[in-house]
Simulated scan of single mutants.
Amino acid sequence: MADRKEINDPALSTVAPGAPVTSQRPVTEYNLGIPYPQIPRALVAPDAENPSGTPGYNNRGLSVLQQHVAFFDRNNDGIIYPWETFQGFRAIGFNLLRSFFGMVFINGALSYCTQDSWLPSPLFSLLVKNIHKAKHGSDSEVYDTEGRFVPEKFEEIFTKFAKTEPLRLSSEEVSALVQANRNAYDPFGSNAANLEWSLAYSLLKDKDGFLTKEAIRGVYDGSIFYEIERKRQQSKMEGSSA
């Protein structure tokens, strides 16, 4: 546990009286229960409740950002084609319209960024190995520019915006998060962030209308997509055998 005397050193203050926003969006000042939370993690997505990342999750040597998108690489060949994105959206429960829109936006907007050459892919494919090149602005900065996961930044989502409950975000708090992370003159990044969080909320909100911390962490490392697909398949099997 961090020494409170040390934390109370004015030189370490996280609040500036002349900048009210610094008190409105507080950051974590004490030990998170994670060794070196400021160090970006390449392979796992740890938080205070899961200091070793998702239990039993096989990261396959991929970065956390690569893990986030790998679910949509349906044949595991390192390339995500538009139809695979569509299949992935359908596999986790999105309807035809949202799945089509997600496919068009994701592959249409991000394909070129991930290619190895200056030539675009005629099939609008995404290369998983280069997915870090598709990281956009106006985001939470939980992923660094190389696609690693920064535990400290992830915890800040909740210290700054979880005003109702410490481990869940309401729809209003999700909106506040997206608005607060907007960068100037970045319409693409801000719209992409809004789409991503809107899809996450619509898919994962609980019965009380909240997005839980564990669900959000599962989105960052992609583990929750596999869990949702498994549950849906199991439900279908039970329904067909009834």
Rank of each mutant, 00 (worst) to 15 (best):
F154V: 14
L211C: 11
K160A: 14
G137K: 04
P10M: 04
I106V: 14
I216H: 01
N194M: 12
V219D: 04
M1L: 10
A134T: 05
N191A: 07
M237S: 14
N75H: 09
Q234H: 06
K129M: 05
T145S: 15
A2P: 10
V69H: 03
F94C: 07
R98F: 08
G56D: 00
A48F: 10
V44W: 04
P20M: 07
K205F: 09
Y220E: 05
L203I: 02
E146N: 14
Y36T: 15
A16I: 05
V69F: 05
T54L: 05
N59V: 12
E152F: 13
T212L: 06
A2S: 12
Y30M: 13
L62M: 13
K213R: 10
S52Y: 00
F158Y: 10
R25G: 00
T164I: 14
V21E: 11
S241K: 14
K129T: 03
F71K: 00
R230Y: 09
A11T: 11
H132Q: 15
G53V: 02
A48V: 09
M103D: 01
E238K: 15
Y220C: 12
P51V: 00
S52Q: 07
Y226P: 00
Q67K: 13
Y201N: 09
R60G: 03
N58H: 08
A11N: 14
A42P: 06
F124I: 07
D186E: 12
S52C: 03
N76F: 09
Q233T: 12
W83R: 15
N31T: 09
